[in-house]
Design a protein around this nucleic acid. Sequence first.
DNA 1: TTACGATCCGGACCGAGGTCCGTTTAATTT
DNA 2: AAATTAAACGGACCTCGGTCCGGATCGTAA
Lengths: 227, 227
Amino acid sequence: MLYADFMSSTLPPFPTPQEPVEEKPVLLELGTGTDESGLRADAARNRARLLDAAARLVAEHGAAGVTMEAVAAAAQVGKGTVFRRFGDRTGLLTALLDHSERKFQASFLSGPAPLGPGAPPVDRLRAFGCAALRRAADDLELQLAAEPCPDRRFVLPPRQLRYRHVVMLLRQAVPDADCELLAQTLMSYLEPALIFHLTRQCHMPMERLQAGWYDLVARVTGTAGPC
Amino acid sequence: MLYADFMSSTLPPFPTPQEPVEEKPVLLELGTGTDESGLRADAARNRARLLDAAARLVAEHGAAGVTMEAVAAAAQVGKGTVFRRFGDRTGLLTALLDHSERKFQASFLSGPAPLGPGAPPVDRLRAFGCAALRRAADDLELQLAAEPCPDRRFVLPPRQLRYRHVVMLLRQAVPDADCELLAQTLMSYLEPALIFHLTRQCHMPMERLQAGWYDLVARVTGTAGPC
DNA sequence: TTACGATCCGGACCGAGGTCCGTTTAATTT
DNA sequence: AAATTAAACGGACCTCGGTCCGGATCGTAA
């Protein structure tokens, strides 16, 4: 199934008021070039300036300082341009995370085992969680700020990609289970908001979260335990 | 540990600009009377009118129609009053859900088994999930609209109460596990945003979600399975 | 080089959440 | 009943996300 088919058959029609022009990919598409493909020269230039300005603002004032107007001003660009390019604030923040997300995607899609192909599914699952935890822990603030409203949270390409990956691994590990639901459960453990709560508000060390992931994978897949 | 102690030791200092006056409870406190206790007569009256107006707006225009100004106008009250009373939009929406939430709390704290005390922990856990799923399914829209920003999501009294309940049950069922983390995992399965995605966007029937909960509880507690 | 159409730009504009502070009012004390 | 004070009130005001559309700009074709 093509990506577009999958999305359009899954999503109800979203009435996007001022259709953003790109930012649909975020799905790993090796070899097709950068995000600026198909953009007019000035548009590509402005896009780069905007991302640059946004990153600068994050570095200086944190994610909260990333105001659409501030970004526009810092990039010496009109406000409307920001929205045309990225759709909304969430889109801009997501674009900032896009680079590292793609690296992560590449590593579990085609990187070295055990994260990538080659290892047994349970091992890959364990590795996946660790990598996801690490990724969530770095720039947690940005991830939180980029969290979309509830009704889009589960249908964004990066999430869908991760989800399908986990479903695939689960199908291999526990063929008779409801792998869709189990996958959602596992993914929830890696949710930035939860990581934030556990580490920043409950002061749990990352080692504990990681051990918790191993334990969870073991319980869900029926591995190990006093059997 | 007192509730206030728990919260203040858990939370970083939140700079609440215009301190809301109540809405701290939401924690079941049998016998202390309604929410209007300690409020000045006019304040209590306005609170009631506001909740009434808000409920009317929800019924007429959905949760999206609940504008702070609209509520204020419909209750014939100043806008500032709404914020003074409920803190923010989330607080108002939460207050709308408070009644049913308390009923739910009462049912698992002191209602009849297996949801209430008396049944084995795993049975209580199963019943808890079913009740929570049902509750999330009713007025899903309101629950989504009432979702707080990520850094408060896990520290609100209702959530904490549910969480501690699940932790307690887990400690009885699997004493040697990291019950805090397992509890968070189980709770994530009941998150309104996820329920919304699965039922409304993936069109799963509730029966499947319920079966998924039973299965999840079984796996997490090590119950059943081909042992 | 010119002409043309699609794309992009920019900033005025709007709505909604949230804040501030001078004024009013309910409870309490004398 | 008058005085006092803490609490509540209300709406002007601010910020920020998001929209709109007339005008500028780019790419292209003649």
